[in-house]
Amino acid sequence: MVHVLQIIIILFSIFALSRLILRRRDRAVPLGELIFWSIIWLGAIAIALFPELVASVANKTGFSSAIDLVIIVTVLVLFYLQFRLYVKVEQQQQDITRLVRQIALQRKKKK
């Protein structure tokens, strides 16, 4: 029996993959990112199609249920992505500051 949730996950993953490919065509996504996100979404589809796979992994690794395993792994990945984003934003903040500083110094020189 196919669960509604499985269909939703698969449809959403396909949607996300299509966006990913479109952004790639605009050259907005570097190759590394393309591979990373493809793995995430293809993984989601695989889990939706073969939930018993996750269940057996969960059993062997001592998780009480497949859902537990999926949620914990997801949260970890999200935290990691969040951290990566934080570093990137911080880097950009510093770049903006350097730019603003350079403009301030150069305008002073001209006068």
Partner: peptide, 13 residues
Amino acid sequence: IVLRHIINRGQGA
């Protein structure tokens, strides 16, 4: 002598 940041960047900056 006045230098001007075109946008606000904070006191450290």
